[in-house]
Amino acid sequence: MARASSNRRKTVVTVLAWAIGLLIFFPILWTVLTSFKTEAEAVASPPSFINFHWTLENYAEVQSRSDYFRHFLNSVVISLGSTVLGLIIAIPAAWSMAFVPAKRTKDILMWMLSTKMLPPVGVLIPIYLIFRDIGLLDSLLGLIIVLMLINLPIIIWMLFTYFREIPGEILEAARMDGAGLKAELLYVLTPMAVPGIASTLLLNIILAWNEAFWTLNLTAAKAAPLTAFIASYSSPEGLFYAKLSAASTMAIAPILILGWFSQKQLVRGLTFGAVK
């Protein structure tokens, strides 16, 4: 292909891709912009794009009206807690399946995946009743446990695909070199697996942060994370677009940024290593 025509093609592709990219991103951009408007400007017709009176008052009001920081902290505790707990259980499991595979390893992995197919409504009532009876309803601990369990298969699969890529010979070399199980885990496996563990951590924080079935159904006021905080904006009270936007922006910003960092791992984690 000639140089000039290939350059022209690149221009066309660039324009098209940017247009579509901006279109897909637009709802988020619009939300962020609206969050800085006054309520009147937020519903003004025709809407203004950037030449409006920028203000931070929506943020202050959202915080004072529905206590953003408490929900934010709940979200942090729930997503971090469930992920870390999940990792503690998943790392040994994934290690053993990756390095000491047995005949049934593949079956176990497939079975773990299949637990992910269990629709949450199928177990909603018992979990709700059990939690009610043992006092875990509307508690952070309860949500940490449930979210850990629903994401455990993904965590195990993701770690498994990372661990599997670490050549077994390296661990054998370490054993020949006199490393016991502890030294092997500490000096050889963990440093090699850190990138994998980190991306697993990241992706699962995102999944837990955005989980919106259990968090909505098992919380009331005390343990409600941001998903529930936002849901409280579903019934409008007067002019509320700017406040809704501010609340939305605050709910998604932390995770959007994390997500951008972990987009490569996302593919691997959510496809159970089937696509790399």
């Binding site: 891709a17 940017w18 579509i20 990219g21 901006l22 897909i24 991103f25 709802p27 988020i28 619009w30 939300t31 609206t34 995102i206 942060w209 955005n210 919106a212 909505l216 941001l226 998903t227 529930a228 936002i230 849901a231 904006y233 579903s234 409008p236 677009y241 809704l244 936007s245 939305s248 709910a251 998604i252 995770i255 959007l256 994390l258 997500g259 951008w260 987009q263 996302l266």
Partner: peptide, 23 residues
Amino acid sequence: VRILVIAPFFVMPTVGALVWKNM
């Protein structure tokens, strides 16, 4: 462009739905 395109996946479902519904 990749970052723009991937962004909606990280938006929590309640936020996405409310933004679409209202705004």
